[in-house]
Amino acid sequence: MIDSNRQKILDEIQRHIKALTRGIYALVIGVATLIYYLLNPSILNVDVQSKESVVVAEAPLPEYENGIHLATGFKEGENLNLVIANCTSCHSAKMVTQNRATRDGWKTMIKWMQETQNLWELGESEPLILDYLAKYYAPEKAGRRQPLTDIDWYELED
């Protein structure tokens, strides 16, 4: 009987200690959070500018590899600087490199972008840009349905 009472009291004390410990933990976490917030008040703001502030040390990359301008994927060629400056400020280079057209076709696209997409006048750069596009991104001859190419053969396990 006495043992059982003693056990109850011990249990009670243990419960109190546990509750107290939890309270202390919560207090410590709370105070730490408060201090952190006071030191870093921007924690609750969306801070997209912080990208600028991070400096990642990188070895300089070669500009071209196998005739491809690495940063953009454009083919190496005369007047590429004009193409990059005028054609990649709104859309990616891929918009150009996945397409093929004649000089007329490229001119039509430029006109469409000027009429509907806020592209500026290209002035004396326009013929030079067209020279580049018509030379490096010209249509390839193709039939009505090409043979399947680049087949990646594999053993089919069923």
Binding site: S42, I43, L44, N45, V46, D47, K51, V54, V56
Partner: peptide, 12 residues
């Protein structure tokens, strides 16, 4: 992913 710390608000 972008090599930078982004702190988001609770509205993310």
């Amino acid at each position: 992913l972008i090599g930078s710390r982004i702190v988001f608000g609770k509205n993310l």
